[in-house]
């Protein structure tokens, strides 16, 4: 977490626009998107395919810079248009966590190692990293599979390990792109509830891109994206 910015929002996007191509082939994937998330807040992002959800997520995740607009994470300005204001890779390492539709676990590492590697990347000592990885796996209910390779885990278990990996460095912001798409509704809901638990207990903000309307009650706020524009969802389930 960013130490000196406890009162600042977890993430702030200001006027984000992303344009692919130029001239006749120009596509506006994201149009003047502004949003502000507090710490511990869990937000769902809905919208049809091609609406710009993933573009928004990758822009905020600092892997696909916007054409214009500003991104502030934990009170620290990190992007000004396409220009990076910090070392993006180092910033991601310390402050961001990612979960995707596929768990994207590294196939040659077991569950504990998949979590520990995120910590070691952030300069944790190997023994401390393993200890913390086991704690996280226990927290997420997959401690008994710690020594199994991803191949030996069910889809739900893999996704839990992926969540543990995203949480490993206690990030300010967790970005999840359709994390339950490969799971049945029961397990999908379990993962969504897990995000809420993580956000509320650990103070991370979570943005979840989802098509699963059945779990929307789990989220603090729901946004909808269409044609690159972001707006609060019609039936926001905010408590």
């Amino acid at each position: 977490m960013i130490a000196d910015a406890n009162n600042s929002p977890a993430v702030e996007a200001l006027g984000l626009t992303k344009i692919y191509g130029a001239g006749n082939t120009e596509v506006v994937a994201m149009k003047d998107v502004s949003v502000r998330l507090a710490r511990g807040e869990v937000v769902a992002l809905l919208g049809p395919s091609g609406a710009g959800k993933s573009t928004f997520l990758t822009a905020v995740g600092l892997i696909n810079p916007p054409t214009s607009g500003r991104i502030v994470i934990g009170g620290k300005p990190v992007m000004d248009g396409p220009r990076a204001l910090v070392d993006l890779r180092a910033f991601r390492r310390r402050h961001l966590g990612f979960v995707f539709q596929k768990a994207n676990l590294i196939p040659f590492l077991n569950a504990a190692e998949n979590v520990a590697v995120a910590l070691e990347i952030n300069d944790a000592a190997p023994r401390a990293a393993r200890k913390r990885a086991l704690e996280l796996l226990d927290y997420l209910g997959v401690a008994e599979r710690a020594n199994n390779l991803p191949d030996a885990l069910s889809g739900g278990q893999q996704q839990r390990v992926a969540v543990a990996r995203a949480l490993a460095n206690e990030p300010s912001l967790i970005l999840a792109d359709e994390p339950t798409a490969a799971l049945d509704s029961h397990r999908g809901r379990q993962v969504m509830v897990l995000f809420r638990k993580v956000a509320h207990e650990r103070g991370s903000a979570v943005i979840v891109v989802t098509h699963d309307h059945r779990s929307l009650d789990v989220f603090d706020r729901t946004y909808e994206m269409e044609d690159g524009e972001l707006r609060p969802a019609a039936a926001d389930h905010a408590p």
Binding site: I106, I121, N122
Partner: peptide
């Protein structure tokens, strides 16, 4: 894919 994931997590080029 794994290297991309490592980079996404912030792994240094030296690693």
């Amino acid at each position: 894919h794994d290297i991309a994931m490592l980079k996404l997590m912030g792994a240094r080029n030296t690693m």
